[in-house]
Design a protein around this nucleic acid. Structure first.
Lengths: 251, 251
DNA sequence: CGATGTTTTGACTCGGTTCAAATAAGGTGG
DNA sequence: CCACCTTATTTGAACCGAGTCAAAACATCG
Protein backbone atom coordinates (compact mmCIF):
# COMPACT_ATOMS: atom_id res chain seq x y z
CA UNK A 1 0.00 0.00 0.00
CA UNK A 2 2.81 2.37 0.78
CA UNK A 3 4.26 3.53 -2.50
CA UNK A 4 7.89 4.44 -3.12
CA UNK A 5 9.17 7.67 -4.48
CA UNK A 6 9.74 7.32 -8.19
CA UNK A 7 13.28 7.47 -9.42
CA UNK A 8 14.14 11.09 -10.17
CA UNK A 9 13.71 11.87 -13.83
CA UNK A 10 15.53 15.15 -13.53
CA UNK A 11 17.70 16.97 -11.09
CA UNK A 12 15.92 18.49 -8.13
CA UNK A 13 16.52 22.12 -7.30
CA UNK A 14 17.59 23.63 -3.99
CA UNK A 15 14.11 24.95 -3.23
CA UNK A 16 13.44 22.67 -0.30
CA UNK A 17 16.75 23.33 1.40
CA UNK A 18 16.25 27.05 0.94
CA UNK A 19 12.67 26.90 2.18
CA UNK A 20 13.82 25.13 5.29
CA UNK A 21 16.64 27.49 6.14
CA UNK A 22 14.48 30.50 5.43
CA UNK A 23 12.41 29.57 8.44
CA UNK A 24 15.36 30.01 10.76
CA UNK A 25 17.11 33.03 9.31
CA UNK A 26 16.65 35.84 6.83
CA UNK A 27 17.96 34.08 3.74
CA UNK A 28 18.47 36.67 1.02
CA UNK A 29 19.14 36.45 -2.67
CA UNK A 30 22.88 36.06 -2.13
CA UNK A 31 22.50 33.11 0.19
CA UNK A 32 19.93 31.54 -2.07
CA UNK A 33 22.27 31.92 -5.02
CA UNK A 34 25.05 30.31 -3.03
CA UNK A 35 22.96 27.27 -2.31
CA UNK A 36 21.69 27.18 -5.87
CA UNK A 37 25.22 27.21 -7.20
CA UNK A 38 26.18 23.97 -5.51
CA UNK A 39 27.40 21.74 -8.30
CA UNK A 40 28.39 18.28 -7.23
CA UNK A 41 25.06 16.55 -7.53
CA UNK A 42 24.33 12.84 -7.11
CA UNK A 43 21.28 10.58 -7.23
CA UNK A 44 21.24 7.36 -5.23
CA UNK A 45 18.81 4.45 -5.07
CA UNK A 46 17.20 3.23 -1.84
CA UNK A 47 19.42 1.12 0.39
CA UNK A 48 22.61 2.96 -0.43
CA UNK A 49 24.71 4.16 2.47
CA UNK A 50 25.04 7.86 1.83
CA UNK A 51 27.51 8.16 4.67
CA UNK A 52 29.49 5.08 5.50
CA UNK A 53 32.45 6.27 7.48
CA UNK A 54 31.30 9.18 9.55
CA UNK A 55 34.82 10.46 10.13
CA UNK A 56 35.61 11.00 6.48
CA UNK A 57 32.17 12.12 5.41
CA UNK A 58 31.79 15.24 3.33
CA UNK A 59 28.88 17.55 4.08
CA UNK A 60 25.93 17.25 1.72
CA UNK A 61 22.40 18.57 1.36
CA UNK A 62 19.49 16.23 0.77
CA UNK A 63 17.50 17.76 -2.08
CA UNK A 64 14.87 15.06 -2.42
CA UNK A 65 13.98 11.71 -0.98
CA UNK A 66 14.16 10.30 2.53
CA UNK A 67 17.08 8.82 4.43
CA UNK A 68 17.77 7.63 7.97
CA UNK A 69 20.56 7.51 10.52
CA UNK A 70 20.94 3.84 11.29
CA UNK A 71 22.74 1.71 13.86
CA UNK A 72 23.19 -2.05 13.56
CA UNK A 73 23.75 -4.68 16.20
CA UNK A 74 26.13 -7.50 15.42
CA UNK A 75 23.25 -9.99 15.31
CA UNK A 76 21.45 -8.04 12.61
CA UNK A 77 18.99 -6.05 14.66
CA UNK A 78 18.65 -2.56 13.32
CA UNK A 79 17.68 0.70 14.97
CA UNK A 80 16.82 3.87 13.13
CA UNK A 81 18.04 6.79 15.19
CA UNK A 82 16.37 9.53 13.22
CA UNK A 83 15.06 10.37 9.81
CA UNK A 84 16.67 12.71 7.30
CA UNK A 85 14.11 14.59 5.19
CA UNK A 86 14.36 16.70 2.05
CA UNK A 87 16.12 19.95 2.84
CA UNK A 88 18.06 18.44 5.72
CA UNK A 89 21.84 18.32 5.83
CA UNK A 90 24.08 15.28 6.00
CA UNK A 91 27.24 15.48 8.10
CA UNK A 92 27.10 19.26 8.29
CA UNK A 93 29.17 19.21 11.48
CA UNK A 94 29.94 22.61 12.77
CA UNK A 95 32.25 21.00 15.27
CA UNK A 96 35.58 19.66 14.05
CA UNK A 97 35.18 16.28 15.69
CA UNK A 98 32.51 14.13 14.22
CA UNK A 99 29.58 13.41 16.42
CA UNK A 100 29.43 9.86 17.67
CA UNK A 101 27.42 9.40 14.60
CA UNK A 102 26.04 6.61 12.56
CA UNK A 103 25.80 5.72 8.92
CA UNK A 104 23.05 7.36 6.89
CA UNK A 105 21.06 5.20 4.54
CA UNK A 106 18.75 6.16 1.70
CA UNK A 107 15.20 4.92 2.28
CA UNK A 108 13.90 6.10 -1.10
CA UNK A 109 15.67 7.30 -4.22
CA UNK A 110 17.49 10.42 -3.09
CA UNK A 111 19.31 13.36 -4.58
CA UNK A 112 22.11 15.13 -2.76
CA UNK A 113 24.64 17.87 -3.47
CA UNK A 114 28.03 18.50 -1.97
CA UNK A 115 27.68 21.27 0.58
CA UNK A 116 31.37 21.86 1.23
CA UNK A 117 31.35 25.26 -0.51
CA UNK A 118 28.42 26.29 1.63
CA UNK A 119 30.15 25.28 4.85
CA UNK A 120 33.33 26.99 3.75
CA UNK A 121 31.45 30.20 3.06
CA UNK A 122 29.58 30.03 6.33
CA UNK A 123 32.66 29.66 8.49
CA UNK A 124 33.90 32.97 7.07
CA UNK A 125 30.74 34.72 8.16
CA UNK A 126 30.32 36.37 11.55
CA UNK A 127 28.48 34.42 14.23
CA UNK A 128 25.45 36.58 13.75
CA UNK A 129 25.02 36.12 10.01
CA UNK A 130 21.50 34.91 9.27
CA UNK A 131 22.68 31.99 7.18
CA UNK A 132 24.93 30.82 9.94
CA UNK A 133 22.18 31.14 12.49
CA UNK A 134 19.85 29.18 10.28
CA UNK A 135 22.34 26.35 10.04
CA UNK A 136 22.80 26.44 13.79
CA UNK A 137 19.08 26.13 14.34
CA UNK A 138 18.94 23.26 11.87
CA UNK A 139 21.71 21.51 13.79
CA UNK A 140 19.91 22.04 17.07
CA UNK A 141 16.75 20.57 15.60
CA UNK A 142 18.65 17.43 14.67
CA UNK A 143 19.36 16.98 18.34
CA UNK A 144 15.72 17.54 19.15
CA UNK A 145 14.72 14.64 16.93
CA UNK A 146 17.12 12.33 18.70
CA UNK A 147 15.91 13.38 22.13
CA UNK A 148 12.32 12.88 21.06
CA UNK A 149 13.30 9.44 19.86
CA UNK A 150 14.58 8.63 23.34
CA UNK A 151 11.27 9.66 24.87
CA UNK A 152 9.30 7.62 22.36
CA UNK A 153 11.34 4.48 22.87
CA UNK A 154 11.72 4.85 26.60
CA UNK A 155 8.37 5.93 27.87
CA UNK A 156 5.67 5.80 25.20
CA UNK A 157 3.52 2.79 24.36
CA UNK A 158 3.28 1.56 20.79
CA UNK A 159 0.21 3.58 19.86
CA UNK A 160 1.67 6.72 21.41
CA UNK A 161 5.01 6.16 19.72
CA UNK A 162 3.41 5.92 16.33
CA UNK A 163 1.38 9.06 16.87
CA UNK A 164 4.40 10.96 18.13
CA UNK A 165 6.56 10.01 15.17
CA UNK A 166 3.82 10.91 12.73
CA UNK A 167 3.46 14.30 14.35
CA UNK A 168 7.18 14.89 14.17
CA UNK A 169 7.33 14.04 10.49
CA UNK A 170 4.29 16.17 9.81
CA UNK A 171 5.88 19.13 11.54
CA UNK A 172 9.16 18.72 9.71
CA UNK A 173 7.60 18.27 6.29
CA UNK A 174 5.44 21.30 6.81
CA UNK A 175 8.64 23.26 7.37
CA UNK A 176 9.71 22.45 3.83
CA UNK A 177 6.24 22.95 2.47
CA UNK A 178 5.82 19.34 1.51
CA UNK A 179 2.76 19.10 3.67
CA UNK A 180 -0.40 20.52 2.18
CA UNK A 181 -3.75 20.34 3.90
CA UNK A 182 -2.58 17.94 6.54
CA UNK A 183 -1.48 15.54 3.87
CA UNK A 184 2.13 14.72 3.23
CA UNK A 185 4.37 12.13 1.56
CA UNK A 186 4.97 9.07 3.68
CA UNK A 187 7.20 6.64 1.82
CA UNK A 188 8.12 4.45 4.79
CA UNK A 189 7.54 0.71 4.76
CA UNK A 190 6.16 -0.84 7.89
CA UNK A 191 9.48 -2.58 8.38
CA UNK A 192 11.23 0.79 8.45
CA UNK A 193 8.68 2.10 10.89
CA UNK A 194 9.28 -0.94 13.07
CA UNK A 195 13.01 -0.29 13.14
CA UNK A 196 12.43 3.32 14.03
CA UNK A 197 9.85 2.68 16.74
CA UNK A 198 11.47 -0.35 18.31
CA UNK A 199 8.48 -2.54 17.49
CA UNK A 200 7.85 -5.66 15.41
CA UNK A 201 6.51 -5.32 11.91
CA UNK A 202 3.34 -7.09 12.85
CA UNK A 203 2.65 -4.75 15.68
CA UNK A 204 3.32 -1.71 13.54
CA UNK A 205 0.70 -3.00 11.18
CA UNK A 206 -1.84 -3.47 13.95
CA UNK A 207 -1.09 -0.08 15.41
CA UNK A 208 -1.65 1.61 12.06
CA UNK A 209 -4.87 -0.30 11.58
CA UNK A 210 -6.15 0.85 14.90
CA UNK A 211 -5.19 4.43 14.19
CA UNK A 212 -7.17 4.26 10.97
CA UNK A 213 -10.12 2.66 12.69
CA UNK A 214 -10.14 5.45 15.23
CA UNK A 215 -10.22 7.98 12.40
CA UNK A 216 -7.01 9.70 13.41
CA UNK A 217 -5.19 9.15 10.15
CA UNK A 218 -5.63 8.10 6.54
CA UNK A 219 -2.74 6.39 4.82
CA UNK A 220 -2.71 5.39 1.18
CA UNK A 221 -0.50 5.59 -1.87
CA UNK A 222 2.42 6.73 0.17
CA UNK A 223 0.61 9.76 1.48
CA UNK A 224 -0.51 10.29 5.02
CA UNK A 225 -3.31 12.52 6.19
CA UNK A 226 -3.70 13.44 9.84
CA UNK A 227 -7.41 13.73 10.40
CA UNK A 228 -7.32 14.99 13.96
CA UNK A 229 -4.01 16.68 14.74
CA UNK A 230 -5.18 17.99 18.10
CA UNK A 231 -6.18 14.56 19.34
CA UNK A 232 -2.99 13.10 17.93
CA UNK A 233 -0.77 15.65 19.67
CA UNK A 234 -2.59 15.20 22.93
CA UNK A 235 -2.54 11.43 23.06
CA UNK A 236 1.23 11.29 22.70
CA UNK A 237 2.14 14.51 24.49
CA UNK A 238 3.69 15.93 21.33
CA UNK A 239 5.15 19.41 21.71
CA UNK A 240 6.23 21.48 18.77
CA UNK A 241 9.81 22.67 18.84
CA UNK A 242 10.06 26.46 19.16
CA UNK A 243 13.04 27.44 17.04
CA UNK A 244 11.76 31.02 16.85
CA UNK A 245 12.25 31.51 20.55
CA UNK A 246 15.83 30.30 20.23
CA UNK A 247 16.45 33.02 17.71
CA UNK A 248 14.98 35.64 20.00
CA UNK A 249 17.07 34.41 22.89
CA UNK A 250 20.19 34.80 20.79
CA UNK A 251 19.28 38.31 19.69
CA UNK B 1 21.30 -1.44 49.57
CA UNK B 2 22.46 1.24 47.18
CA UNK B 3 23.97 3.97 49.29
CA UNK B 4 24.01 7.66 48.46
CA UNK B 5 27.04 9.85 48.17
CA UNK B 6 27.56 11.64 51.44
CA UNK B 7 27.05 15.35 51.51
CA UNK B 8 30.33 17.04 50.63
CA UNK B 9 32.19 18.08 53.74
CA UNK B 10 34.61 20.21 51.79
CA UNK B 11 34.97 21.66 48.36
CA UNK B 12 36.04 19.23 45.67
CA UNK B 13 38.96 20.13 43.45
CA UNK B 14 39.10 20.19 39.68
CA UNK B 15 41.09 16.95 39.49
CA UNK B 16 38.36 14.88 37.90
CA UNK B 17 37.55 17.42 35.22
CA UNK B 18 41.23 17.77 34.42
CA UNK B 19 41.78 14.02 34.37
CA UNK B 20 38.95 13.65 31.93
CA UNK B 21 40.07 16.35 29.52
CA UNK B 22 43.64 15.15 29.69
CA UNK B 23 42.51 12.01 27.93
CA UNK B 24 41.46 13.95 24.88
CA UNK B 25 44.13 16.60 24.57
CA UNK B 26 47.53 17.56 25.91
CA UNK B 27 46.41 19.57 28.91
CA UNK B 28 49.40 21.44 30.28
CA UNK B 29 50.05 23.38 33.45
CA UNK B 30 48.48 26.52 32.04
CA UNK B 31 45.23 24.83 31.14
CA UNK B 32 45.15 23.03 34.45
CA UNK B 33 45.66 26.29 36.29
CA UNK B 34 42.85 27.85 34.31
CA UNK B 35 40.44 25.14 35.35
CA UNK B 36 41.72 25.23 38.91
CA UNK B 37 41.13 28.96 39.10
CA UNK B 38 37.40 28.67 38.48
CA UNK B 39 35.79 30.39 41.41
CA UNK B 40 32.04 30.32 41.43
CA UNK B 41 31.49 27.06 43.27
CA UNK B 42 28.18 25.61 44.43
CA UNK B 43 27.00 22.47 46.21
CA UNK B 44 23.49 21.17 45.60
CA UNK B 45 21.46 18.38 47.17
CA UNK B 46 19.89 15.53 45.20
CA UNK B 47 16.69 16.39 43.36
CA UNK B 48 17.70 19.94 42.52
CA UNK B 49 17.42 21.02 38.92
CA UNK B 50 20.91 22.19 38.06
CA UNK B 51 19.67 23.48 34.75
CA UNK B 52 16.06 24.48 34.55
CA UNK B 53 15.75 26.69 31.51
CA UNK B 54 18.17 25.40 28.95
CA UNK B 55 18.21 28.64 27.00
CA UNK B 56 19.49 30.77 29.83
CA UNK B 57 21.78 28.18 31.36
CA UNK B 58 25.33 29.13 32.18
CA UNK B 59 28.05 26.58 31.51
CA UNK B 60 29.29 24.66 34.55
CA UNK B 61 31.60 21.80 35.38
CA UNK B 62 30.45 18.93 37.57
CA UNK B 63 33.21 18.39 40.12
CA UNK B 64 31.58 15.64 42.13
CA UNK B 65 28.33 13.71 42.32
CA UNK B 66 26.01 12.37 39.63
CA UNK B 67 23.30 14.13 37.65
CA UNK B 68 21.01 13.28 34.74
CA UNK B 69 19.41 14.90 31.74
CA UNK B 70 15.71 14.36 32.25
CA UNK B 71 12.52 14.71 30.24
CA UNK B 72 9.03 14.60 31.73
CA UNK B 73 5.73 13.70 30.17
CA UNK B 74 2.69 15.67 31.20
CA UNK B 75 1.26 12.64 33.01
CA UNK B 76 4.32 12.31 35.21
CA UNK B 77 6.25 9.65 33.34
CA UNK B 78 9.92 10.43 33.41
CA UNK B 79 12.72 9.51 31.05
CA UNK B 80 16.39 9.91 31.78
CA UNK B 81 18.14 10.80 28.54
CA UNK B 82 21.69 10.43 29.78
CA UNK B 83 23.79 10.62 32.89
CA UNK B 84 26.18 13.39 33.82
CA UNK B 85 29.20 12.13 35.74
CA UNK B 86 31.98 13.84 37.71
CA UNK B 87 34.24 15.74 35.33
CA UNK B 88 31.49 16.22 32.77
CA UNK B 89 30.26 19.61 31.65
CA UNK B 90 26.80 21.10 31.97
CA UNK B 91 25.50 23.26 29.14
CA UNK B 92 28.94 23.74 27.65
CA UNK B 93 27.42 24.49 24.24
CA UNK B 94 29.95 25.33 21.65
CA UNK B 95 27.12 26.26 19.38
CA UNK B 96 25.29 29.52 19.99
CA UNK B 97 21.84 27.97 19.85
CA UNK B 98 21.02 25.67 22.69
CA UNK B 99 20.60 22.08 21.80
CA UNK B 100 17.07 20.89 22.02
CA UNK B 101 18.06 20.07 25.48
CA UNK B 102 16.46 19.04 28.70
CA UNK B 103 16.73 19.97 32.33
CA UNK B 104 19.59 18.47 34.31
CA UNK B 105 18.82 17.12 37.75
CA UNK B 106 21.16 16.18 40.57
CA UNK B 107 20.87 12.51 41.51
CA UNK B 108 23.25 12.74 44.44
CA UNK B 109 24.74 15.68 46.30
CA UNK B 110 26.76 17.49 43.67
CA UNK B 111 29.37 20.19 43.42
CA UNK B 112 29.67 22.41 40.36
CA UNK B 113 31.67 25.45 39.31
CA UNK B 114 30.87 28.14 36.79
CA UNK B 115 32.79 27.39 33.61
CA UNK B 116 32.10 30.64 31.79
CA UNK B 117 35.71 31.85 32.12
CA UNK B 118 36.88 28.56 30.66
CA UNK B 119 34.56 28.81 27.69
CA UNK B 120 35.52 32.43 27.15
CA UNK B 121 39.19 31.51 27.12
CA UNK B 122 38.65 28.59 24.81
CA UNK B 123 36.81 30.56 22.15
CA UNK B 124 39.89 32.79 21.88
CA UNK B 125 42.09 29.81 21.15
CA UNK B 126 42.75 28.49 17.65
CA UNK B 127 40.76 25.48 16.49
CA UNK B 128 43.76 23.26 16.99
CA UNK B 129 44.50 24.16 20.62
CA UNK B 130 44.62 20.98 22.71
CA UNK B 131 42.18 22.29 25.29
CA UNK B 132 39.71 23.16 22.63
CA UNK B 133 40.06 19.77 21.02
CA UNK B 134 39.56 18.08 24.34
CA UNK B 135 36.32 19.97 24.88
CA UNK B 136 35.22 19.06 21.39
CA UNK B 137 35.82 15.40 22.05
CA UNK B 138 33.93 15.65 25.32
CA UNK B 139 31.01 17.20 23.47
CA UNK B 140 31.08 14.45 20.86
CA UNK B 141 31.03 11.84 23.59
CA UNK B 142 27.88 13.38 25.00
CA UNK B 143 26.23 12.62 21.71
CA UNK B 144 27.55 9.09 21.81
CA UNK B 145 25.78 8.48 25.11
CA UNK B 146 22.50 9.65 23.68
CA UNK B 147 22.84 7.48 20.60
CA UNK B 148 23.69 4.49 22.76
CA UNK B 149 20.60 5.23 24.77
CA UNK B 150 18.52 5.02 21.61
CA UNK B 151 19.96 1.60 20.82
CA UNK B 152 19.35 0.35 24.33
CA UNK B 153 15.75 1.51 24.43
CA UNK B 154 14.92 0.58 20.88
CA UNK B 155 16.52 -2.77 20.27
CA UNK B 156 17.90 -4.30 23.47
CA UNK B 157 15.96 -6.49 25.91
CA UNK B 158 15.90 -5.64 29.60
CA UNK B 159 18.88 -7.77 30.56
CA UNK B 160 20.92 -6.46 27.64
CA UNK B 161 19.95 -2.89 28.41
CA UNK B 162 21.14 -3.18 31.96
CA UNK B 163 24.44 -4.70 30.92
CA UNK B 164 24.96 -2.05 28.28
CA UNK B 165 24.33 0.84 30.64
CA UNK B 166 26.62 -0.65 33.26
CA UNK B 167 29.39 -1.00 30.69
CA UNK B 168 28.92 2.58 29.59
CA UNK B 169 29.13 3.91 33.13
CA UNK B 170 32.13 1.73 33.83
CA UNK B 171 33.91 3.08 30.78
CA UNK B 172 33.13 6.67 31.64
CA UNK B 173 34.11 6.38 35.28
CA UNK B 174 37.37 4.74 34.33
CA UNK B 175 38.09 7.80 32.22
CA UNK B 176 38.06 9.94 35.36
CA UNK B 177 39.88 7.31 37.36
CA UNK B 178 36.95 6.67 39.63
CA UNK B 179 36.97 3.04 38.65
CA UNK B 180 39.60 0.92 40.34
CA UNK B 181 39.89 -2.80 39.81
CA UNK B 182 36.60 -3.10 38.01
CA UNK B 183 34.84 -1.55 40.94
CA UNK B 184 33.27 1.85 40.81
CA UNK B 185 30.72 4.07 42.58
CA UNK B 186 27.15 3.33 41.63
CA UNK B 187 24.82 5.62 43.54
CA UNK B 188 21.70 5.03 41.44
CA UNK B 189 18.45 3.89 42.96
CA UNK B 190 16.52 1.22 41.13
CA UNK B 191 13.87 3.80 40.38
CA UNK B 192 16.44 5.95 38.62
CA UNK B 193 17.68 2.95 36.69
CA UNK B 194 14.11 2.20 35.68
CA UNK B 195 13.63 5.72 34.32
CA UNK B 196 16.87 5.47 32.40
CA UNK B 197 16.24 2.03 30.95
CA UNK B 198 12.55 2.43 30.17
CA UNK B 199 11.63 -0.40 32.56
CA UNK B 200 9.53 -0.75 35.70
CA UNK B 201 11.21 -0.66 39.08
CA UNK B 202 10.20 -4.22 39.76
CA UNK B 203 11.74 -5.46 36.58
CA UNK B 204 14.96 -3.55 37.21
CA UNK B 205 15.17 -5.35 40.51
CA UNK B 206 14.66 -8.75 38.94
CA UNK B 207 17.15 -8.01 36.21
CA UNK B 208 19.80 -7.03 38.72
CA UNK B 209 19.09 -10.15 40.76
CA UNK B 210 19.57 -12.31 37.74
CA UNK B 211 22.79 -10.56 36.82
CA UNK B 212 24.09 -11.23 40.30
CA UNK B 213 22.97 -14.83 40.17
CA UNK B 214 24.82 -15.30 36.91
CA UNK B 215 27.97 -13.92 38.53
CA UNK B 216 28.36 -11.05 36.13
CA UNK B 217 28.27 -8.30 38.72
CA UNK B 218 28.44 -7.58 42.42
CA UNK B 219 26.53 -4.60 43.75
CA UNK B 220 26.63 -3.45 47.36
CA UNK B 221 27.07 -0.29 49.37
CA UNK B 222 26.71 1.85 46.31
CA UNK B 223 29.63 0.25 44.57
CA UNK B 224 29.43 -1.96 41.53
CA UNK B 225 31.95 -4.57 40.48
CA UNK B 226 31.86 -6.08 37.02
CA UNK B 227 33.02 -9.64 37.45
CA UNK B 228 33.15 -10.62 33.81
CA UNK B 229 33.56 -7.57 31.59
CA UNK B 230 34.12 -9.63 28.46
CA UNK B 231 30.91 -11.58 28.87
CA UNK B 232 29.07 -8.39 29.74
CA UNK B 233 30.30 -6.56 26.66
CA UNK B 234 29.48 -9.46 24.43
CA UNK B 235 25.98 -10.12 25.65
CA UNK B 236 24.89 -6.55 24.98
CA UNK B 237 27.08 -5.79 21.96
CA UNK B 238 28.84 -3.00 23.83
CA UNK B 239 31.52 -1.21 21.84
CA UNK B 240 33.95 1.20 23.39
CA UNK B 241 34.00 4.67 21.88
CA UNK B 242 37.31 5.43 20.16
CA UNK B 243 37.95 9.11 20.87
CA UNK B 244 41.67 8.62 20.10
CA UNK B 245 40.94 7.82 16.48
CA UNK B 246 38.89 11.00 16.23
CA UNK B 247 41.92 12.97 17.28
CA UNK B 248 44.07 11.25 14.70
CA UNK B 249 41.52 11.89 12.02
CA UNK B 250 41.58 15.58 12.85
CA UNK B 251 45.38 15.77 12.80
C1' DC C 1 12.19 4.04 68.03
C1' DG C 2 9.16 5.37 64.65
C1' DA C 3 9.16 7.55 59.90
C1' DT C 4 10.45 7.37 55.32
C1' DG C 5 12.43 5.68 51.28
C1' DT C 6 14.41 1.56 48.93
C1' DT C 7 14.70 -3.22 47.80
C1' DT C 8 12.62 -7.63 47.40
C1' DT C 9 9.08 -11.26 46.49
C1' DG C 10 4.72 -13.32 44.75
C1' DA C 11 0.62 -13.61 41.84
C1' DC C 12 -1.63 -11.99 38.04
C1' DT C 13 -2.31 -9.37 33.73
C1' DC C 14 -1.36 -7.52 29.33
C1' DG C 15 1.11 -5.36 25.53
C1' DG C 16 3.80 -6.78 22.16
C1' DT C 17 6.45 -10.73 19.84
C1' DT C 18 6.78 -14.82 17.18
C1' DC C 19 5.51 -18.03 13.81
C1' DA C 20 2.99 -19.10 9.86
C1' DA C 21 0.26 -18.30 6.05
C1' DA C 22 -2.84 -15.59 3.07
C1' DT C 23 -3.55 -11.52 0.39
C1' DA C 24 -2.42 -7.36 -2.05
C1' DA C 25 0.64 -4.28 -4.65
C1' DG C 26 4.40 -3.17 -7.78
C1' DG C 27 7.75 -4.17 -11.17
C1' DT C 28 9.41 -6.82 -15.17
C1' DG C 29 9.70 -9.15 -19.24
C1' DG C 30 7.39 -11.45 -22.87
C1' DC D 1 -1.55 -5.94 -21.51
C1' DC D 2 -1.04 -10.02 -19.06
C1' DA D 3 1.73 -13.65 -16.41
C1' DC D 4 4.89 -13.98 -13.06
C1' DC D 5 7.90 -12.76 -9.36
C1' DT D 6 9.09 -10.16 -5.51
C1' DT D 7 8.24 -7.31 -1.89
C1' DA D 8 4.74 -5.32 1.31
C1' DT D 9 0.70 -5.72 4.01
C1' DT D 10 -2.64 -8.15 6.60
C1' DT D 11 -4.67 -11.72 9.70
C1' DG D 12 -4.84 -15.44 13.24
C1' DA D 13 -3.22 -18.08 17.19
C1' DA D 14 0.03 -19.11 20.72
C1' DC D 15 3.46 -17.44 23.65
C1' DC D 16 6.34 -14.66 26.69
C1' DG D 17 8.75 -10.57 28.47
C1' DA D 18 7.75 -7.00 31.19
C1' DG D 19 4.16 -4.31 33.76
C1' DT D 20 0.98 -3.86 37.68
C1' DC D 21 -0.67 -4.47 42.23
C1' DA D 22 0.13 -5.47 46.86
C1' DA D 23 2.67 -6.48 50.73
C1' DA D 24 6.79 -7.66 53.23
C1' DA D 25 11.60 -7.01 54.47
C1' DC D 26 15.47 -3.78 54.92
C1' DA D 27 17.98 0.64 55.50
C1' DT D 28 18.74 5.02 56.87
C1' DC D 29 18.14 8.79 59.60
C1' DG D 30 16.40 12.09 62.65
Amino acid sequence: MTARYRAPSRRAGPQLAVARLRRYGAIGAAEEALIGSLEDWRPDPPGVELIRDVRSATPRLLLSGWAAKVRWLSDGRRQIVSFVLPGDGLALHQRPHPLGLCPVMALTPVQTVDAAPLIRAVTQLPQTAPLRQALDVAASLEEVWVLDQVIRLGRLAAYERMAHLIMELRWRLTAVELGVGDQFPFPLTQETLADALGLSIVHVNRTLQQMRREKLIELQNGRLRVLDPVAMAQLCDFREPQPQTWLEAAA
